[in-house]
Amino acid sequence: MRFMIIIKADKNTEAGVMPDERLLTEMGQFNEDLVKAGIMQAGEGLHPSSRGARVKFSGNKREVIDGPFAETKELIAGFWLWQVKSKEEAIEWVKRCPNPTGAESEIEIRQIFEAEDFGAEFNPELREQEERLRAQITANQK
């Protein structure tokens, strides 16, 4: 099972405050543990929303909204992609994580859809396309 582990933003991450050396060291060790366990597939921090944008869809109309965005508690400061056996395993790993802000913080755990989750609508042609795209992505990363 794959999960996205979402680190929620706070006023400091939104202000562009970088983590201190202690937190970088602790997160580096945690990431090393994840890699050694064969769990971590990706993990990145994100720039503040002031450097981002949103595209709002309304039928065929598209509207670009530049950051920053008001609701800090709904924003994402970083993420991991993990391959684990269960949600419970993901929870246990998150509980071992250093506190991402050193203060009040929250990490969200969300399972990623897999091909079999889509049922019959995900027909053989769509499955073949998905496999081809994933192979191309892997090749592009080398």
Score class of each variant (00 low, 15 high):
residue 31 N to M: 08
residue 118 F to Q: 08
residue 53 A to I: 10
residue 75 L to H: 02
residue 111 Q to V: 14
residue 100 P to T: 01
residue 120 A to K: 15
residue 133 L to V: 14
residue 61 K to V: 12
residue 69 F to S: 02
residue 105 S to N: 09
residue 22 R to S: 08
residue 61 K to Q: 15
residue 118 F to A: 14
residue 76 I to F: 09
residue 8 K to L: 08
residue 31 N to K: 06
residue 7 I to P: 00
residue 67 G to L: 07
residue 129 Q to M: 15
residue 22 R to K: 12
residue 114 E to N: 14
residue 75 L to D: 02
residue 59 G to W: 04
residue 20 D to L: 03
residue 116 E to P: 11
residue 134 R to P: 04
residue 52 G to M: 07
residue 33 D to F: 02
residue 91 I to Q: 08
residue 47 H to R: 11
residue 92 E to W: 02
residue 137 I to V: 10
residue 103 A to K: 13
residue 71 E to P: 10
residue 12 N to A: 14
residue 64 V to T: 15
residue 68 P to V: 06
residue 31 N to C: 07
residue 76 I to L: 10
residue 8 K to P: 00
residue 62 R to E: 12
residue 100 P to A: 01
residue 89 E to T: 02
residue 121 E to H: 05
residue 97 C to G: 03
residue 93 W to L: 00
residue 52 G to S: 14
residue 100 P to Y: 01
residue 18 M to C: 03
residue 40 M to Q: 11
residue 119 G to H: 04
residue 55 V to L: 15
residue 45 G to Y: 09
residue 117 D to V: 06
residue 122 F to C: 08
residue 77 A to S: 12
residue 16 G to L: 12
residue 100 P to M: 01
residue 119 G to K: 06
residue 50 S to Q: 11
residue 7 I to F: 05
residue 13 T to M: 07
residue 57 F to G: 03
residue 9 A to R: 00
residue 122 F to S: 04
residue 106 E to L: 13
residue 87 K to V: 14
residue 88 E to H: 09
residue 132 R to W: 08
residue 50 S to E: 10
residue 66 D to L: 12
residue 89 E to F: 01
residue 77 A to I: 02
residue 26 E to Y: 02
residue 60 N to M: 09
residue 13 T to E: 01
residue 24 L to K: 12
residue 40 M to I: 08
residue 4 M to F: 10
residue 25 T to N: 06
residue 17 V to I: 15
residue 127 R to S: 13
residue 17 V to N: 07
residue 100 P to D: 01
residue 129 Q to W: 15
residue 128 E to D: 12
residue 19 P to G: 07
residue 16 G to R: 11
residue 48 P to A: 06
residue 41 Q to L: 15
residue 21 E to R: 04
residue 19 P to N: 06
residue 25 T to I: 00
residue 12 N to D: 14
residue 42 A to M: 10
residue 79 F to N: 04
residue 21 E to M: 02
residue 11 K to Y: 02
residue 79 F to A: 05
residue 59 G to I: 04
residue 55 V to G: 13
residue 53 A to L: 15
residue 20 D to F: 04
residue 93 W to P: 01
residue 128 E to T: 10
residue 129 Q to D: 15
residue 91 I to Y: 06
residue 4 M to K: 10
residue 14 E to D: 06
residue 41 Q to M: 14
residue 8 K to R: 13
residue 88 E to N: 11
residue 29 Q to L: 13
residue 24 L to F: 05
residue 61 K to I: 11
residue 128 E to K: 14
residue 85 K to S: 12
residue 116 E to K: 15
residue 85 K to Q: 13
residue 8 K to G: 04
residue 70 A to T: 14
residue 35 V to N: 02
residue 78 G to P: 02
residue 82 W to G: 00
residue 49 S to N: 03
residue 72 T to M: 06
residue 117 D to Y: 09
residue 77 A to G: 08
residue 80 W to Y: 15
residue 20 D to P: 04
residue 26 E to H: 06
residue 29 Q to Y: 11
residue 115 A to W: 05
residue 49 S to Q: 01
residue 39 I to P: 01
residue 5 I to D: 00
residue 131 E to M: 13
residue 12 N to T: 12
residue 32 E to S: 03
residue 64 V to S: 11
